[in-house]
Design a protein around this nucleic acid. Structure first.
Lengths: 340, 340
DNA sequence: ATTATATACGAAAACGTTTTAGTTGTCAAG
DNA sequence: CTTGACAACTAAAACGTTTTCGTATATAAT
């Protein structure tokens, strides 16, 4: 059995309350007593019971993260970095991280309810904001602390960190144009995601600014953020009567599949066909050819998210409610000048 | 404020105990009452307080996982898959996953103590068993349920899942030999890891079985499981007076760095220099040339670990205390026949 | 009519903290 | 000699469950 406050009290001939106060640095405890208590606690290997403490204080020192297994969040390297940065910042503040995975959409709400109403966490980080996002509606209704990766719709308002997707895509498409590509496709993220539309805006802007017309046939949205989805999307593009000779692909994982589709067709990426991806996952640099990609400062994003949430939890005011970071285009060989 | 059992009791004119029993399917509650209680609970949006419940029952329905940030656990794709599989199996059993990250070795013990004695989790999955592993010593001393990824030393005994690393490496090295390579280096895992020695055994066996002598200069152990460590290790091998013309590298992430070092030297992997890695991370197939690698059934490993731990937690006997899975060699182009 | 046996429910303790509201004892000021 | 103030401690309630042990009523057996 673990050592409790009561054990310490008994051993020292003190009351439970005195011990508790000593451990928590209450002012009405004699300095000597305080030290004595702390010493004995350490010697006896005392660890406060998280359950008892959180029952009493309504604090858990834990941050929640909910993952959808179907969406394969946990298989995208992008998420791994996010997780790592969040984990790191958490540990810096003495918080733990509670992961809850669910496998189908109708279990999503239940997962959040367990976390929030079961009081398993003090706050939640949610990723991939959607239109009419019921998670957000729920958390706002409950008044539960949360921050999001991904901005809100016009009407909604909550703390978030986001990356300027429109600018990122625009830079990427502009780069393809600069390299001599003129017929550029767009493989987008699931349309339910708010960032999906922003990225498309960037595509549209770049075309407009260069006097290129937008051919709707060249725009495909994927249902899932997977390699396979990217593969199939690119296949569809290449089967068109007038296929593109370049494409902006809104996620590197999808771009990976897309590259395979291009290569299977006997085309050389970075020569016959230009490709720019988004995320700049570590793998991007190792591909053949290395993938040009829009880098998200994902480590910074995770850190900021965590820091904001912890402030929120501790009732401190946020310096800024919304943070939008600039992505940077990392040019590699998959977007080399069009040869023809 | 969240709705509690008391709220339900009051609304229904029942006692707290009756409501609790009804919700937990005690037999001494009238079927109609049980249904009534459950219905109202659902309607009122009742969620049991995790803290209260765990204070009372000493159960948390949570499994703990401790990561070392310095060892960059959370940046290896291998760990991501492990995490995904564990997360998935957890959710299948209604368990959550508590991640605790620590940044330096001397904080490791504290992280475990917080989890165990703070009663934040019911059991722990630990990865990368080491010689004289104090985590294991601690958990055994406390009698705390845990399972390990990685086997024990001869003397220690606890439930684990492991992969037959010796066989994996042996197959890989044999394959290199079959491809005509004769001077084969070995880049190993940190020596503190138990699996490190097993993998070396495989290397040694393969050489012996083929009448090749083992040159100690060709054996390098890395301190960290990173791309950079692999890069530097390979550099050292190539700077030897009699450098190898192939190498077995005990992790794909390290192999990635090693490949870069080889290529920087103007050598062609899979022609001048044969490389076989370990793990078969998703990226391996996408590299140029695609990396031959020993595949760990990591998804199965995670699932088994989780399932064993949950059995342990629930006091059920384990079918097998030790599970050793067979790895399989996935042959790609980085190990193509030696040309000379 | 008496006793035994189910059946359905309730009272209360317990889990380990934190925190409010005292209760001492000491000392200085009036 | 009171009174007040202060310092250092304690009692006890509360957090929301679960679970043991009762108790009351109804039904069945004697």
């Amino acid at each position: 059995m673990p050592v409790t406050i009561k054990d310490i009290a008994r051993k020292l001939g003190l009351s439970v309350s005195t011990v508790s106060k000593a451990l928590n640095d209450y002012p009405d405890i004699a300095p000597e007593t305080r030290e004595l208590v702390k010493r004995t606690a350490r010697r006896m290997g005392y660890q406060p019971s998280a359950a008892a403490r959180s029952l009493r204080t309504h604090k858990t020192n834990t941050i929640g993260l909910v993952f959808c297994l179907l969406d394969r969040h946990l298989t995208d390297p992008y998420y791994l970095d996010l997780l790592a940065s969040i984990g790191e910042e958490c540990s810096r503040h003495g918080f733990d991280l509670l992961l809850s995975a669910y496998s189908s959409r109708d279990m999503e709400r239940a997962a959040y309810e367990r976390m929030v109403e079961g009081q398993k966490v003090d706050g939640i980080i949610l990723t991939g904001t959607r239109y009419k996002d019921e998670r957000i509606a729920y958390l706002k209704e409950k008044g539960f602390p949360f921050v999001a990766l991904g901005r809100s719709e016009k009407d909604g308002d909550f703390p978030y960190v986001d990356v300027d997707g429109a600018k990122g895509v625009r830079d990427g498409v502009q780069h393809l144009i600069d390299q001599g590509y003129r017929r550029i496709g767009f493989i987008g993220l699931p349309e339910e995601l708010i960032c999906s539309a922003h990225r498309f805006q960037g595509y549209k802007m770049a075309l407009e600014e260069n006097g290129l017309s937008l051919d709707p046939h060249l725009v495909i949205y994927c249902q899932h953020l997977t390699q396979d989805a990217g593969y199939r999307a690119m296949q569809r593009l290449l089967e068109l009567d007038e296929p593109p000779n370049a494409a902006f692909i809104c996620s590197d994982v999808m771009a990976l599949g897309a590259m395979m589709a291009v290569q299977e067709r006997g085309l050389t990426v970075g020569q016959d066909f230009g490709i720019v991806g988004f995320d700049d996952i570590p793998m991007a640099a190792q591909l053949q050819p290395p993938l040009t990609s829009v880098r998200q400062p994902i480590y910074e994003i995770g850190t900021l998210l965590c820091r904001m949430l912890i402030k929120l939890i501790q009732g401190e005011p946020l310096d800024e409610l919304h943070i939008v970071l600039e992505p940077t285009l990392v040019i590699r060989e998959s977007s080399k000048a069009h040869q023809r």
